[in-house]
Every structure is written in structure tokens, then in C-alpha cells.
Design a protein around this nucleic acid. Structure first.
Lengths: 217, 217
DNA sequence: TAGATTGTTAATCGATTAACAATC
DNA sequence: TAGATTGTTAATCGATTAACAATC
């Protein structure tokens, strides 16, 4: 485990991990690079190369032991502890994420939802309490929160983002349809549905079938 | 305008387009490649190269005329007509997308939402009617729908995806946490929040600040 | 042992950037 | 005209793939 490594490699590792969970579920104990490659949609060379970048090794005759592989990968993603995440903006999208059940198996926990209007409650009551936005900064500091999902409207996104940064947030998943720039202390990943739909529109129109617009990269 | 071109280029073009809307909003009429590059976070060379790949030209002294640029880019993304999109799965996430107001300015229209339980209605009533899933295939065929957003639970994702394909869907934005493979006739882009959070967790932990985990590519 | 698979190096491929001639 | 910016080619950079020696 060294250097920085780029996002493409890291997200492939995450996908290997998820594929390995599925293989293990199916009763497999060992796996070869070509099987894993097939499942994730990359080449066997790619799999072995990615692993070797992180000093993850297998057995020259018997492939990789799934449990050991998963142990290493989980270590890489800090799965030995709960990752606390806050959601900022309790609209429909924020609310959807706060109810999402898939986080727990990844050791991710939504610990709070913030909104200017804390009485706001779209849909049924959340399991996670909605708190006033004014308490966000002190919460981030006192709880040592590093990660946030930003689901506020476009017009306040930049302002709220700045508050998150100054409170000490280190990583933000931005769903407001405006690009936010990463800083020295905080990495942002922006997701934009319109943009994704537009690229689909382009490729569909060009008549590209089969070729993957597969993501992450 | 030629060949296939890869997803990275296409999504940059979409981001140029959005940046240009903002510049125009601010009253600009012309723009140089370095300004646009700065705004989108790429190099000026990249901007000019991307444009030249699609035969989009400017003026050697006066840069690019924003209106003309936008005309070309809108043409690329078929903005001369409404893009009809269906949402499959009326849970919280599907519901959030069906209420999202940002689609219309991109000429994207959510024309229907499907769910096994059409009486299901999370949150307030949708503007878009929720229809029984059993009607999806005939709807896709009769309306000539090409694009869909898949927001069903993981366990039925593959099955529903197959139905969409056989009905003639050409592009799918998949939000079920399971990788779906593109086929000859249909391109899928899978988005997985957990994966995105995991990559953030990795980079945050490695202490990477400033370096962008900027997306799309 | 013989055969199969890894780990890694070298080759290839593609995308980004730099540079500069053309030109407005 | 002189100066600045494009459009494009060539150089660089990085990521993917192929190949194969090591070895279980």
C-alpha cells in the first residue's frame, strides 16, 4: 500500500470487493483473476495489476483466497470502524439517502440530517433526526465528522459547502447541480443526473450498443 | 462530428455546456478557451481539442461566441426535441427524481413512473402518475421510450432491467446497487453511492486534499 | 513432476498537454 | 501591422494489456 493512486483504481477495488461478497455468498472460497475480471468487466491482467499495486497477493497455483482478499480490501476502505456521514439538505433526495438501507453493510452510518427547516419531513418520519442547519458546524466539530452528502438546492450549495469545509469536513458527495471545487482539505465528487442522462442520450443517438459507458472512471 | 468518442469527452462537453449557460447568464457573449477551461477545471488545450473533435470552431482572435457554441453543443445532445424518460421504481429515490425540477431546462421530461404497487406514493403526490409495472413494456413500445432511470430494489433489478431491454429501452441509469451489463442494444450506467463514499473514505484517509476525485471520467 | 496461475516487466494503447504555425 | 488566440500536430504522460518467468 503506497502512494496516492487514482480514482479509477480505487473504484475498481471497491467493485472487486462487492463482487467478492457475492462470490462468497455463493459458497466460493477461492477465486482466480479471470473469474473476478469477468464478473467486474475488466481484464485478468487488470485485476492482478490492481492487486499488486496494493501488495495484495495470491497463490501461484490456487488463485486468491476470498476471505483474505476481502480482509485486505476492507482494510483499505477502513471497514474496521463505522464511517459516520451526515446528510445536508432534507429534501426528497436527502431523505431518500437517509432511509437507504444499503449503507450499514458497508459500515457507513448516517448520523444526522441537517436542514434550514428542521420540521421539514418529506415522506414518513426519518429514523435519523433532522436537525437545524445552524447546528451543523458545531456537530461536525464535536462529532469529528469527515464525510457529508450535500443535497441542498443549487442556490445555497456553495454557501453550505463553505460552511462544511470550515467546520472540518474532508469529503463531500455533491448532488447539487453545480460544480464545487475540491480544496486543500476537502475532496468533492459531484454527481449530476442530467449530465449522465445527456451522455446516455449522446451514445444512444450515435447508436452505440454494447460498448460500455461504465462508470467511475 | 464523427466516430464514437469516449464517455470522458462527452461528459466534459456537457460540463462546458453548463458552464457556458452560466457565463451567458452573467452577460458574456464571447469566451476564450482558457476562461472556459478554468471554470470547468481542465486545460485550455483540452477545451480546444475537445471542440475540434466535434468540428466546433471559434475565431482565432476573438475566441468563441457563446451562442454559437451552445447551439452546437445542444445539437450534440439533441436539445431540439424533448427527451422522454421513464422512472422504474417509485420508492424514495425514484420519487425524488420524479419531482426533480432541474430536468426541464435540459429538455428532459419524466413521462411516467412505474412500480409493482401503483398505489404507492411516498411523500406528496407526484405530478407524474405512478403506473403499474405490468404496463411498462407496452408503454415503452407505444411511446417509443429510449431512456429509463432504474430505482428498484436490488433483488428485482436484473429482472426489471431485462424487461426494459426487451421492450426496447436503449439507455439505463441504474441506481440499484448491483452492476448491470450493457448489451448490444442498451447502454447502462450504474451509480453506487456506497462506492462513491468508499472512494472518498480512501482518499480522505490517505490525506489527499486538493487533488480532485472529480467525476464523470 | 507437469500444468496452471500469479506477479511483474515490457509493450501497447489512448488520452492529455505542449507547442507553434496559421490567422483574425 | 502587431498581438493574441485558435486549431492541430507532435510529444508526453499515464493507464491498460500482453507476455512470460517464477513457482505453487
Amino acid at each position: 500500500m503506497q502512494k496516492l493512486k487514482n480514482k479509477r483504481v480505487i473504484s475498481r477495488l471497491s467493485r472487486y470487493k462487492n463482487a467478492l461478497y457475492r462470490f462468497r455468498e455463493l459458497g466460493f472460497e477461492r477465486i482466480f483473476s479471470d473469474y473476478l475480471a469477468e464478473e467486474v468487466g475488466v481484464t485478468p491482467s487488470q485485476v492482478r495489476k490492481d492487486f499488486s499495486l496494493f501488495d495484495i497477493t495470491g497463490n501461484k497455483r490456487a488463485g486468491y483466497q476470498i476471505n483474505i482478499l476481502l480482509e485486505k480490501l476492507e482494510q483499505l476502505f477502513l471497514k474496521d470502524r463505522i464511517q459516520k456521514v451526515i446528510i445536508v439538505g432534507a429534501g426528497r433526495l436527502g431523505s431518500a439517502f437517509s432511509h437507504y438501507r444499503g449503507f450499514s453493510r458497508e459500515k457507513i452510518e448516517i448520523v444526522a440530517v441537517f436542514d434550514v427547516d428542521p420540521t421539514k419531513c418529506v415522506g414518513s418520519k426519518g429514523v435519523v433526526p433532522i436537525r437545524p442547519l445552524s447546528e451543523m458546524e458545531s456537530f461536525i466539530k464535536s462529532e469529528g465528522i469527515e464525510l457529508g452528502i450535500l443535497t441542498v438546492p443549487e442556490r445555497v450549495a456553495e454557501e453550505v459547502y463553505q460552511k462544511m469545509i470550515s467546520a472540518g469536513i474532508k469529503g463531500v458527495l455533491n448532488f447539487a447541480p453545480i460544480p464545487l471545487k475540491s480544496t486543500e482539505t476537502c475532496i468533492v465528487t459531484t454527481y449530476c443526473v442530467e449530465l449522465e442522462l445527456e451522455t446516455l442520450i449522446y451514445f444512444v443517438n450515435e447508436g452505440i450498443g454494447g460498448l460500455d459507458a461504465e462508470d467511475c472512471d
